[in-house]
Structures are given as C-alpha cells and as structure tokens.
C-alpha cells in the first residue's frame, strides 16, 4: 500500500513560513477551500491554515539552539482522528493513505480534533467544518499537471527544500531513504499513531584542527625574513 507523506528536514528549515502561505493560496481556491479568515483587517485576525511554522529554543544562552518547526497533518498510519468521527467525514484514503475530511458530511463536532494529539486540525470558524492538510490531494493526483509539479504546494515553494514528499512505504523513495539514513523520527511516538510524516534532526558539521595544521614548512611567513637591519647596535659591535 502506498503511504504518501512529508518528511521535514529540521536541519535546513529556516522558519520562513513559505510553506504556510503557499499552502493557503493553493488550498483556498482548491478542493479543500475556502480557507476563511476572520477579522482580516481588524483586531485579532485569525483564520484557517493547514500548516504552521513554530519556533522553539533549546538550551540556554549561549548554548542555545533555535529550532524552526513546521507542522501540518501527519497523515498517521493509524489515525486516531478517523474512527472517532461520528459521520465518516474523516477518512483515510485507501489508495495513498492521505487522511481527508469530506466537508459535505462533516457536522463540525470537533471530536476528531480532540482525538488528534498534534493540533493540526482546524475548525473553519465560518464554514463550521473541520479542515486540515490534504497533502494537496488535488495537486498530487492531478494527472494533467506535469510530473514535476504533481507535488504539494508547500513542497514546491519551500526555499530550502526542507520538505521532502513521497511514499514512505516504498523503501527506495527519497523520503524512505532520508528517514533511514538521517534518523527520521515521528512526533509523539508514545501514542502509537504512527505518523506518516517524519522529521529529520539537526546535524552538525565540525572542523577538526590538529597541531600539525599550524606548523608547516610551507608557511608563507618563512618566505619573509621578517627582520630588517636598520643599523642598530648589535653584539657584533661590542664583542669579539
């Protein structure tokens, strides 16, 4: 079975929010739209987004890591949000594992959002139905798009290509390789939800310098006999 997913590389994500708004613009006019905004030009502007980028600080000054952390629906393999839905509006697609909401069936009871530990479902305050990341189902399945563009909007936009997309069940896919080789991990594994989306940890590149590196015969200083005689007195003048 195919399980499409995103793998987010925290090693390169700079927290630019491109994935946030590219998602919004694609989806608001798409299958899962509209994504409504409330008070768009007033106090407390708020609205529906499928993807958010957050910032965490780890450690304390000066040993601080700043972690930018994008998060959208993780398309869990065992999605707790699905069975609890009383209407069947929430479902997981058989063909590709994408978890979706059918707005025509949704009654806006919010129960599924309670059953998601990740806080990625959002009830659209005007439309009163539950919305969430669709993995851009209407892009990735659109056969009329060129292959290279049959990807989620956020993946295409991401300036650092921190968002990898593919089938995590295919061991040879880019995402599976990344998870395998780069220590990809799942969020809140304690719940057994088996998120399909994974995260890649930070990696540090260091440089190792040895004493030898600093002591070399080809040191250009050796080419400059640095002393210049200006006629000062020396031992030559006083000893014999």
């Amino acid at each position: 079975m195919t399980q499409l997913a995103l793998v987010i590389d925290l090693n390169v994500c700079v927290g630019c929010h491109a994935c946030v708004t590219s998602c919004k613009q694609w989806n608001t006019s798409g299958w899962a739209g509209p994504m409504v905004d409330e008070n768009p030009y007033d106090a407390d502007p708020t609205g529906t987004f499928f993807n958010r980028v957050q910032t965490f600080e780890v450690g304390s000054y000066p040993n601080t890591e700043t972690v930018h952390f994008p998060k959208s629906c993780l398309h869990c393999e065992d999605p707790p949000c699905v069975p609890v839905c009383p209407t069947g509006a929430s479902y997981k697609r058989e063909d590709n594992g994408v978890v979706l909401v059918d707005y025509d069936k949704c009654i806006g009871c919010k129960y599924c959002s309670w059953a998601c530990p990740y806080g990625v479902r959002e009830l659209d305050a005007q439309q009163k139905v539950m919305k969430k990341c669709t993995l851009c189902i209407d892009r990735i399945t659109d056969q009329s798009l060129p292959e290279a563009e049959r990807k989620p909007a956020c993946v295409l936009a991401c300036p650092t290509s921190a968002r990898l997309y593919g089938d995590v069940h295919d061991p040879d896919s880019e995402v599976s390789i990344a998870i395998r080789e780069r220590g990809g991990y799942a969020l809140m594994p304690e719940w057994g939800t088996q998120p399909a989306n994974h995260y890649l940890p930070r990696q540090k590149n260091r440089m190792h310098i040895t004493e030898d590196d600093l002591q070399r015969v080809d040191n250009p200083l050796k080419k400059e006999d640095l002393t210049v005689y200006h006629g000062e007195e020396t031992l030559e003048d006083v000893t014999w």
Binding site: A43, D44, T46, T48, F49, R52, Q54, E122
Partner: peptide, 8 residues
C-alpha cells in the same frame, strides 16, 4: 507558535 492572534 507561528501566528499572532490565535487560531482554532
């Protein structure tokens, strides 16, 4: 948290 004025 990634946005200023609250969300669902």
């Amino acid at each position: 948290q990634g946005f200023s004025a609250g969300s669902f």
